[in-house]
Simulated scan of single mutants.
Amino acid sequence: MRGKDGAPSGLEKLARNAGPLRVAVVHPCDAPSLQGLLAASTGTGAGFIAPIIVAPRGKLEALARTMCVDLTPFAIEDVPHSHAAASRAVELVASGTVDALMKGSLHTDELMSAVIAPSSGLLTDKRVSHCFLIETPAYERPFIITDAAVNIAPDLEQKRAIVQNAIDLAHSLGVRHPRVAVLCAVETVNPRMHSTVDAAALAKMAERGQLTGASVDGPLAFDIAVSACAARIKGIISPVAGHADILVVPDLEAGNMLVKQLEFLGGAASAGVVVGARVPVILTSRADSVAARVNSCALAAAVAIRRDDASPE
């Protein structure tokens, strides 16, 4: 992500202040995964990550030859297959060898199953959830969308945890008091639309201190969340309307479609990271551009350094 006139964005500045993040890159055995690794790494790219590649060496080297890539600068953990790669990468986190994970060409479920396994050592008292950081010319600032990749159909308590994770991420990116819009199709509570009931409950939870560090309002339709003009026309008075920093979607399907519409039709730049575990997990899609993969590495680096800064000595 770049600022105006091509200047480094706030995210890039945070990532560069963090220094290279030690990352286990899990099974980067297709061209987009390997290209993203190269573009984000020290020596060959942006310098956001210092990677250890966890993959079948023979398969990886065959791919590198077809791409005319030199793997000599990179440490490689040789494993027999993608499932073993996920397990080994989790072990590298548990041992303190790396400070983050990055998904390669394996399926998301395969990697996340290893991350959330009770024996992984990566779980905390927080719920694991995913946040996209989105930047589009049509909106005044970068904003977070959650959860569009991990939690399929969260209940109210799970949504509360997802929202708090997103608030904490916004804080780590320098947004002191983010404005959170809980998205629904309408602005009124309708018992036949359960997402509106959850949205109203989340807003009340924020009032009662069950969500902290943000202003939370809902239910709000997407236009109200991002357009003060739309809010005025509809007569909606809200501290969040038109200026949302975080958009909370009702379920994964809605979030996934929203993010992809913004990327493919709205010209948005994106970065994505799994939060709530001991370390950030860079969870890219098979269709993600190299830029999106590099942005996600920068986001993970920024999250990791702010987390370390906040840890008690």
Rank of each mutant, 00 (worst) to 15 (best):
F143Q: 07
V25W: 01
I134A: 00
V189F: 07
A94I: 12
G58M: 14
P28Q: 05
P239I: 11
A39Y: 02
D78V: 05
P56K: 01
N295Y: 06
N151C: 05
P32L: 13
R176I: 13
V182N: 00
T66Y: 04
A50V: 01
P8F: 11
I145F: 08
P51A: 05
S95M: 09
M112T: 10
E77Q: 10
D99E: 15
D251V: 12
H27M: 14
A64R: 10
A301N: 14
R176F: 14
I237A: 10
G255M: 04
L299C: 08
T196Y: 06
G96V: 08
D198P: 06
V93R: 08
L133A: 12
G6F: 00
V294G: 06
A166K: 00
A75C: 04
V240A: 08
A170H: 14
C29Q: 04
A271R: 08
P28K: 07
S289W: 03
G36I: 10
E61P: 03
F264A: 03
V69G: 11
A89I: 10
E12V: 12
L202V: 12
I145M: 10
K260V: 04
V115E: 02
D309E: 10
Q210C: 06
P142T: 01
D309V: 05
G266N: 07
C29L: 13
R2T: 12
L183H: 03
G276N: 01
E187P: 04
Q210W: 13
G209D: 09
A89E: 02
I162D: 05
S120N: 06
S95E: 11
S120A: 14
G267M: 05
L60F: 03
V216R: 00
E187G: 15
T72L: 00
H243R: 15
F222C: 03
S311W: 07
A268C: 08
A161H: 14
G255A: 13
T146P: 01
D155E: 09
L156E: 00
V90H: 07
L247D: 02
F264G: 08
E140I: 07
P8N: 11
A161R: 14
A298I: 09
N256D: 06
P280H: 08
G10W: 01
Y139F: 15
E77T: 11
V98T: 07
V249S: 14
A170M: 07
S215G: 11
R179A: 15
V93L: 03
L111G: 03
D308H: 11
C297K: 01
F132D: 09
Y139L: 09
R278E: 13
Q158W: 02
S311F: 02
V186D: 10
I49N: 01
A64Y: 12
L220Y: 04
K4F: 07
D30I: 13
C29W: 01
V23C: 06
V69R: 06
S172R: 15
G272H: 08
L262S: 14
G43P: 09
P142L: 05
D217M: 04
R127A: 10
